[in-house]
Design a protein around this nucleic acid. Structure first.
Lengths: 190, 190, 190, 190
DNA sequence: CATGAATGAGTCTTCATTCAT
DNA sequence: TATGAATGAAGACTCATTCAT
């Protein structure tokens, strides 16, 4: 095989680390080229625009996040266990992969225009869990999307407060509390 | 006395409507001046920078939101009623004042640097309700900030899903469901 | 007499102190108005332009300098004594009235366009001394302007070096040295 | 390889000629781009700021001046000859390279912030001559910096008067006179 | 594939001056 | 005579994108 060295991964790597740190808007193509050790023009050989590059990077991160969550869910059997694992994985990811998490949130909320082609896998995962639980009769009937929305919001906002230091409670207790709350949201009323 | 008419409100009006529509970053001072029917220089007679103008507009909107919520809460007596009114007001505002709501959310999350001087009144309001309920023994003991975070997240994310058309359920049912869920989050376990 | 309070002196005072401190270019009409406790428009009631105001202030300072020098020369009788007093006065002024001196130099060299209406009195004074000395036969024959130029340059550049800390010698010795040098420049060759 | 032609020299050329004619402050980046036949952005590909460009141009001119002086000094053997050549070179340069000279003076005195990295070579050259003369015992003992200051001032101010047409004397006579005066400044008293 | 110099429309901001009151 | 809000032309600088090599 001939040397088919493509600079594409270099571009993505550089962009990723820059986007994570400074956000998409604040990262210039010049920054990216510099960090990737390539020229600005090369970026445009692989991506139509900075926007498209950002979307690519976003997708890649989302995938990463998704695989991370999947790992957490591997051993969960019941829907309750799954929900528990999901919450825990979500929190852990936001803690261990701070920059990745921040980037995903920021890019998703404001910086990116188009929706990811994958339609937000981690979100789908949550819907799936909900649906499964309903089918098994352990979760109450409710609109899947609405339920997902509420739980996602609960998770994300809690993490946001946590990050900004507004919550004084011990980290593990927060996870416990949030898990409990999410469960309460979806389980059957007695 | 000098030319007493002040273009300040014009600037704010123009900025508000532009910020709401396109976001702060994407709105240029030129846009604002054009829409306000003034010269760019005039903006700087009233505000030190675009950033400061944005903060001003933000504060104004937040105030507006806050007054709106207060109106909803006026007749609520018990903490439960208050929570109910809060959720309802929140939803209503997001529906009736779509752009204002979007602007507040966007500006708060990413576009503005400094925190509002009012420290996010609507948020405080929610904390207050929580605290009151705890003191009266109708809400369970939990970290106020954590509780607020979870409820805020539930509200905001639901509205976000709603806006993006992901939730098929009837609007009033959503409010009912969310209210119920929020109540469930904080009331005592039986 | 009716209240004929004119804000003109206020403008000049404010401008003076601002020009001295920050230079003409760097001083804005807004600064001046603020400091004078008047409005910007008022400046233009008394002066056609900032430029003209600056020229006015310059003239005033030059006058001040000139009176200062005259004081030094009062008791000098012979041309040599006068020259000595001139040098000494020049140095003293540059030391005691630092800001005034700096302003005069800067304004003269680059900031002002038109020449002062007074045609630089201190300079004329030096020419006069030279001429007197020549007439009395104690100074040698040479072009008056050339002689003035050389002495002025010697004085000014020395002060410039002094201010920028390049000259390690004691201040009084410098004066002595410069006086001696200037004398040497103009006295008859033996 | 990319478009290898660099507009850098064009930028410098345009800037030089503009700075010389109108001064640094009064020259806009737009002027420079227009004259260089390039876009404004291109300036910033080669220089971080207008300030840096100006400094670059200044350094280049100073170098030019310095080489010019060195040429004059080549054949001078004794300190007296050197001083003579220095004065003559200085005058000649100011006459032949009027704009370059004016630019150097203006930039040095007020327009440039940082000192040249070369620490003002022509000035050093004068100090060197002085020092040499002292060591050889042909110049009298005096502070080197002070001596340099006085001579530099004499030169510069004379040129300034000359340029502004105040000195009626024939050009060569002026040079002779100034040379003589400078010599008188530093030679031993009889 | 890769380069990187060049582009040019656009950004925010400044400020001497004007003029309706 | 004084005011001060408004002006508008100009300023330095940015950056995603293009294209000749």
């Amino acid at each position: 095989m001939a040397r088919t060295i493509t600079k594409r991964p270099d571009v993505i790597d550089a962009a990723l680390s820059l986007f994570m740190r400074k956000g998409i808007k604040a990262t210039t193509t010049r920054d990216i080229a510099l960090r990737a050790g390539i020229s600005e023009g090369t970026i445009y050989r692989h991506f139509d625009s900075k926007e498209e590059l950002a979307a690519s990077v976003f997708d890649e991160n989302l995938d990463y996040f998704w695989r991370y969550l999947r790992g957490y869910l591997k051993h969960a059997r019941t829907p309750e266990e799954m929900l528990h694992a999901y919450v825990q994985g979500f929190f852990e990811f936001s803690r261990i992969e701070q920059r990745r998490y921040s980037f995903i949130i920021a890019a998703h909320q404001t910086e990116l225009k188009r929706q990811s082609r994958e339609r937000m896998k981690p979100r789908q995962m949550l819907s799936k869990i909900l649906r499964l639980g309903q089918r098994q009769g352990v979760f109450r009937k409710m609109d899947i999307q609405l339920g997902s929305a509420m739980m996602m919001g609960t998770l994300m906002q809690t993490i946001f407060y946590l990050k900004s230091g507004r919550i004084a409670v011990n980290y593990d207790d927060v996870i416990g509390e949030v898990t409990g709350t999410c469960l309460k949201m979806v389980t059957l009323d007695k």
